[in-house]
Each structure stands twice: as C-alpha cells, then as structure tokens.
C-alpha cells in the first residue's frame, strides 16, 4: 500500500525527516543555535526538543567553528549529527572544520574512517536581511572533494534527500533556500529517500533546457508556463545535487533540445553555471548546441538591503522569460 501523501511545507518536511531519522537511529542527534525551545530561526526544528529532549536536540553557544567541529568529531566516532547553521552565511566561520577536516579526514587517513555528518544551511536572499544574511555559498563547498552538496527544491525532495544524507557515510551539506521554507507540496508519510547525485527533469520540453537549482527551479517552471503560451517548449532540469553532479541527465536533455540556459541565485561567475556550461562544452552534447549557452545568475555584488535593489540582484521570472525568448528566437 502506498504511504499517505499530505501537503507539507518544506520546513515541515525537513522536520519530519529529522524526526524519522531520530526515531530510527539512536545515533542521530541535532545541534545548532537556538534549535531547542526557540525552534530554530526558521522554525525548522520546531518542537522536536519536546519530543527528543535536550540531550538529542542540543542548543550550542554561538560558536560555529567549534560547533561544526564537535559535530565532525562526533560523526567520526560513531554518532550521526545533523548540524544546523542558523544562516548559511555563518558557514564562513566554520570553513576550517568543514573544508580542512570533514571533507578530508577519510582521505588523509587512507579510508580508515568516515565522517557521516549532515550540515544544513538556510540560504539565499529575498528577506531583506542584507549582505551578511542572504548569500548563496553552495558553490564554495561544491568546490571541495570529499563533501556532497545538495539543494532540494521541493518539500518532497527536502525530506527524501535529508534522509538520504543521514544514511550517507560521508559529509553532506544541504542548502535550503529560506524562501522555500513555507512552500507547500505533497510529501508521503514514513521513510523514503531521494538519491543524492541524481537530477530530476521537472518539466519536459523540446526547445530549451533550463538547468536550475533550488528556488530557481520553481521560477523556471513558472516562466515555462508563460513561454509555452508563446510556443516555446522548455525542459526544466532540477539539478538537486551540485556535487557529485548528474552530468548524464543534463547531457541527454541538451542533446534533445539543443539549447542550454543555467539559472541559479548565487553570483553568476565562477559558479554552478560555469561548471554546467563547461561540462556540456566538454561533452558529446556540445555538437548538438544550436546557440551559445546562457547563464542567469546573481549580480556581481553583495546582496543589498533596499528591497528593489535586492530583487534586481537575483534572477526573477521575467528575466528568465526574456532570456529564454532571446535564446530560442536567436536574438543572441
């Protein structure tokens, strides 16, 4: 019998996944700032402390470097911590433990150990929180072998990929766009996983492949509806994992549509768009391209406070529509 499917928000889906993981495995526990009685800055842990107690839902002091390191150490020695950064921006304070330690310990020790830590990063702009609370730093971590980096875009994936992350023997970094937390979608009850390293074709189309991540997936889908009315048939590929990247799904899609556009919120240059584009340029799909590849990414600036400027720094639905139109109609 199929599991009951309900509408849950993205935040509720994550909370449910954490509860299931903790029910299934005593080694799983949560660490982070204000995740206990406060319920987390975005209410993702919610009331879990009431269910699992302060021994397994641990409020840390405001100590990101130390806190992340403690999670790494616990993971190294048999526990299964899920560490919440209050904002993904604070990963910058913990880079040492993430990049030098979590990512490399297994390798440096010749495979003798592994570090099954999960870290969660509320990311992205759109909340008026200005330059130090709005960044999209996933490509930073995507650059580090030893880490897996995922960006679920739906409540369904958020739950299934978190459960996959907990089951994974290696460090998994989950970037959750803050504006997705309230997004609702169908989520089955009970345990299931969505594999890390597999992209998802969220909409099939003939004219153009849009490879999008995180919140840009929904924006691309919304743009695709408008474009369809104009006779442009868009295929939307939700990358879901940026390391290790699912190259084949993107290659196959581009071979079908002959056009590629990458849409992501992080700063445009030196990021995911560059990687996907180069990967296609290196692949057999290159010969199928009918037009230059287009990247739509964030502006080359920190995120401003002013709301109009803030919107202008990241791709919006009209930007996707315009760029897709130009690409397909050959204006480029």
């Amino acid at each position: 019998m199929d599991a009951m499917v309900r509408e849950l928000s993205y935040a509720q889906a994550i909370q449910e996944a954490m509860a299931i993981a903790m029910d299934m495995d005593e080694r799983v526990f949560l660490m982070g700032e204000d995740i206990g009685v406060y319920g987390g800055a975005f209410q993702v842990t919610g009331d879990l402390v009431e269910r699992f107690g302060t021994e397994r839902v641990i409020d840390t002091p405001i100590s990101e470097l130390g806190g992340a390191g403690v999670a790494v150490g616990a993971a190294l020695t048999g526990m299964r911590p899920i560490f919440e950064f209050q904002f993904s921006d604070f990963a910058t304070l913990a880079m040492e433990q993430i990049v030098n330690q979590a990512a490399k310990i297994r390798f440096m020790l010749g495979g003798e150990v592994s570090v099954p830590v999960v870290m969660r990063f509320p990311a992205g702009s759109g909340t008026g929180a200005a330059a130090q609370h709005s960044q999209s730093l996933e490509a930073w971590l995507g650059h580090v072998p030893g880490l897996k980096v995922i960006q679920p875009a739906t409540p369904y994936d958020a739950k299934g990929m978190l459960l996959a992350a907990v089951a994974d023997p290696d460090p998994v970094m989950i970037f959750e766009h803050k504006l997705l937390y309230k997004m609702k979608g169908p989520v089955p009850e009970g345990y299931y996983t969505v594999p890390i390293g597999k992209a998802d074709i969220r909409r099939e189309g003939r004219d153009l492949t849009v490879v999008a991540t995180s919140i840009m997936v929904q924006k691309a889908l919304d743009a695709a509806v408008v474009l369809e009315a104009e006779g442009i048939d868009v295929e939307v590929v939700d990358l879901r994992t940026i390391r290790p990247m699912d190259k084949q799904t993107v290659i196959d899609s581009v071979k079908k549509t002959s056009r590629l556009m990458c849409v992501y919120e992080a700063v445009k240059t030196l990021g995911i768009g560059a990687e996907v584009s180069a990967m296609i340029a290196e692949s057999e799909a290159f010969d199928y391209l009918d037009a230059p590849i287009v990247r739509l990414g964030g502006a080359e600036t920190p995120i401003p406070y002013n709301p109009e400027l803030e919107k202008a720094t990241v791709p919006q639905i009209p930007d996707i529509i315009t760029a897709a139109r130009d690409l397909v109609r050959g204006a480029r």
């Binding site: 008026g128 929180a129 200005a130 330059a131 406070y305 002013n306 400027l309």
Partner: peptide
C-alpha cells in the same frame, strides 16, 4: 532613511538596520 532603504541613509540604503 537607511531603514527605509533611501539614498540619504547612512549606508545609502545598502545596509539597513543591521549595518
């Protein structure tokens, strides 16, 4: 003016309350 995101604000609308 800064909190209102205006150019006359101390950070010209780029920083807001937190900056």
């Amino acid at each position: 003016a800064e909190f209102f995101g205006k150019t006359t604000g101390y950070c010209k609308g780029r920083g807001g309350s937190m900056h």
